[in-house]
C-alpha cells in the first residue's frame, strides 16, 4: 500500500501546480475589474457570475452570493484585491456555515455513541466504497476500532471491492454473498460490532438513483433494521457527492434526505478539474455540513473539510 499512496501524493502535488495557473488567472481577472471601484458594476458581476457558475455553484446560489457582495460593497465603498478575496471568502463560507457546524479538526467521532454507526449513501459511481475505505483507515489510525458492513449486495464485485479496502485499512468486514438482503447484512454488522465493542461501524450501501422509489424505500428498511440492534442508529447518514456532478446534486440531497435524513456530506474527486461548487447550494439549502473531501485514489487521500480552503480553491 505504501507505494500506492506515495504515488498518489506525488501526483497530487503535480496537479495542484497545474491547477493553480487557471485559478490564478480567473481571480486576477476578477480582481482587475473590482479593485478600486466603489460600486459593483455589470462587468464585475458578469465575471463573478462566470466564476461561480463554471464552478457548478448554480444560478440560484450565485444570485444569492452576488446580492450579498453587492450589499457589502455598497457599505464598504472602495475595495482592494485582498478585501475582495476576504469578502468572497466570508460570504460563501457563511452559506456553508449557516448550519452552525464547525469543521472537523481531525478524523473522529462522538465518544458518547458506541458504536457510532455511519450509513453511507449516494447515487452510482460517486465513490462510496472508496470513501469508506479511506475513512476506515483514518479512524483506525486515530485509535478507533472500526467495523465495515458490505451492504452493497447488488453491484457486481462491490463486496470484493470493500473487502480489499478492509484489508488495506486493516479493519474487520461483515459480509454475505452477492444478492443477499442488505438489511440483513447491516443487522449482522451492527450485532457483530456491538459484541466486539467496536467504536465505529461504517455500512456501505448500493448506489441508487434517487428517483427510483423502491430502491429509496429499501434504504429506509436498512435503517429500521439497524435500529433493532442500536436504537438510535444510524447516527450519521453520509451522502457522498461527486464533485463533477452538476445541479442534479441538489435533487440527490433532497431525495436522499427525505428517505434517510442525511446529516453529513462527503465531496469526492476534488483532485480533478471539477470544483464541486454545488455543495454550497446543497449545504445552504438543506443545512447539511460537508465533513470530508476525497482528493485521490490512495488510502491517504481523504481530508476533513475546511470551508476556507474550499472557498479559496474556487477563487485562488
Amino acid at each position: 500500500m505504501g507505494i500506492l499512496s506515495f504515488f498518489s501524493k506525488e501526483k497530487k502535488e503535480k496537479l495542484d501546480k497545474g491547477l493553480e495557473k487557471t485559478k490564478e488567472s480567473v481571480f486576477s481577472k476578477l480582481a482587475r475589474v473590482v479593485v478600486g471601484k466603489s460600486k459593483v458594476d455589470d462587468e464585475v458581476l458578469d465575471n463573478l457570475e462566470e466564476v461561480l457558475i463554471t464552478s457548478d455553484v448554480g444560478v440560484q446560489t450565485t444570485v444569492k452570493i452576488i446580492e450579498r457582495i453587492e450589499e457589502r460593497v455598497s457599505n464598504d465603498k472602495f475595495l482592494g484585491t485582498s478585501e475582495l478575496n476576504n469578502i468572497l471568502r466570508e460570504e460563501i463560507s457563511e452559506l456553508l456555515a449557516e448550519n452552525n457546524f464547525e469543521d472537523l479538526k481531525d478524523f473522529s467521532v462522538p465518544v458518547d455513541k458506541k458504536p457510532y454507526v455511519i450509513m453511507v449513501v449516494g447515487v452510482n459511481g460517486v465513490g462510496k466504497t472508496t470513501t469508506i475505505g479511506k475513512l476506515a483507515y483514518q479512524l483506525k489510525k486515530n485509535g478507533l476500532k472500526v467495523v465495515l458492513g458490505a451492504a452493497d449486495t447488488f453491484r457486481a464485485a462491490a463486496i470484493e471491492q470493500l473487502e480489499i479496502w478492509s484489508q488495506r485499512a486493516d479493519v474487520p468486514i461483515i459480509k454475505q454473498k452477492m444478492g443477499s438482503d442488505p438489511a440483513s447484512v447491516a443487522f449482522d454488522t451492527l450485532q457483530s460490532a456491538t459484541t466486539q465493542g467496536a467504536d465505529v461501524v461504517i455500512v456501505d450501501t448500493a448506489g441508487r438513483l434517487h428517483n427510483k422509489v423502491n430502491l429509496m424505500n429499501e434504504l429506509g428498511k436498512v435503517k429500521k433494521v439497524m435500529q433493532k440492534v442500536v436504537p438510535d442508529a444510524p447516527h450519521e447518514v453520509l451522502l457522498v457527492l461527486d464533485a463533477s456532478t452538476g445541479q442534479n446534486a441538489i435533487e440527490q440531497a433532497k431525495q436522499f434526505t427525505i428517505a434517510t435524513e442525511v446529516n453529513a456530506l462527503a465531496l469526492t474527486k476534488l483532485d480533478g478539474t471539477a470544483k464541486g461548487g454545488v455543495v454550497i447550494g446543497v449545504s445552504d439549502q438543506f443545512k447539511i455540513p460537508v465533513k470530508y473531501i476525497g482528493v485521490g485514489e490512495g488510502i491517504e487521500d481523504l481530508q476533513v473539510f475546511n470551508k476556507v480552503e474550499f472557498v479559496d480553491s474556487l477563487f485562488k
Binding site: I53, S55, D56, G125, S244, T245, G246, A249, G272, A274
Partner: peptide, 15 residues
Amino acid sequence: VDSMTGQDAVNTAKA
C-alpha cells in the same frame, strides 16, 4: 460520461 456531470463536462470531454 455521466449524464449528471456539471460544468466540468466541457474540460473533461475536451481533454
